[in-house]
Design a protein around this nucleic acid. Sequence first.
DNA 1: AATAATCTTGACTGAATGGTCAAGTCTGTT
DNA 2: AACAGACTTGACCATTCAGTCAAGATTATT
Lengths: 197, 197
Amino acid sequence: MTTRIQRRNRGLILDAALEVFSANGFRGATLDQIAAVAGLSKPNILYYFDSKERMHNALLEGLLDVWLAPLRAIDPEGDPRAQIMGYMRRKLQMSRDYPRESRLFANEVLQGAPRLETSISGTLRDLVDDRAAVIQAWSDAGRLPAIDPYHLIFSIWAMTQHYADFDAQIRLIRGKRDPMDGAEAFLEIVFERLLRV
Amino acid sequence: MTTRIQRRNRGLILDAALEVFSANGFRGATLDQIAAVAGLSKPNILYYFDSKERMHNALLEGLLDVWLAPLRAIDPEGDPRAQIMGYMRRKLQMSRDYPRESRLFANEVLQGAPRLETSISGTLRDLVDDRAAVIQAWSDAGRLPAIDPYHLIFSIWAMTQHYADFDAQIRLIRGKRDPMDGAEAFLEIVFERLLRV
DNA sequence: AATAATCTTGACTGAATGGTCAAGTCTGTT
DNA sequence: AACAGACTTGACCATTCAGTCAAGATTATT
């Protein structure tokens, strides 16, 4: 049974861990940093999560559902183009609203996903396979142009997450302008043209 | 004056450093690992590069030109669509041939580019501004559809580098298939449709 | 109020890691 | 061969960092 204090502190710790892991990667993050951001002592955060590794894992596991929600929300019964455009928009919105989550996963995958448990990767693969099949069926029915559904999904990930993951580079190039200024309009055009039958 | 031995060892070290930094990030890489991969002792690699930081920096600086070559190769006098399609193809080829370089820069940018010297970032920004202006001029002359040239460049980066940077994720989803199978054909369609006047 | 359970932390420990150094080996030049 | 300069390394040091622990403080239960 979890107490009031446990709920509060686990929350504080996971939020601090997200902050620090996403900005520095697993190896670059230190428990001292996380403790400082959480406003707790280091032994105390280790009281709630047995090790740095477990903390990281709890974070990934807890965020997976949020992270995959936009893809889950694709409705096989809906209008193909509207569904995919909606997915793209939701994913871009995620990059805007949850850049830390995006960078957390990016750090992990970039280094070969050495800490992604099989349960997490299995969930991911199954969902993608399922959604790819839906898109393929739309293609086969002539309701979408013939395109590889996996590459379509990858391209949506790539372009939307780019704004969160490579924010530093975009800022460097675009100066004071908001990195996402014009992004939605641009992506709208890209996918609208791609999906036109 | 640089000796034969210096040339050989600096080369060995930078290649090992690329291997280790790109796979683990700056903080995750250790000098012991780099020394082992280079086949030299740790004090010896520090004889050639004063510190881990300098080694990393020498690597980024040395690779910048290679990395930006495809963008440089865009010819303002050429055919707009062919030039941009060619750029996309060269960039995808880079992801295939030089995934380590892609991941090295990705790691750095993902963590906020804390070690990108101003000379490097200046070079990058100037080149992108220049090429964006070329693309804008093509648009203004009606030789390309009206699209934001910066977002166009970002989208090419995003989609091509995705195959190198997130290789682990793609492999997870696609199983045994080569992650880049079908990528070129897909990107060809995306940009061909986007750039049609 | 008394007791048990939960929570908190200062002070540690051992391992990893970036970097140093003095002493030695190798290479090129005369 | 002899010498200078370049190269190499075992042993070491200081710091950082994940994780431990015993003792104390707080909270919940009776």
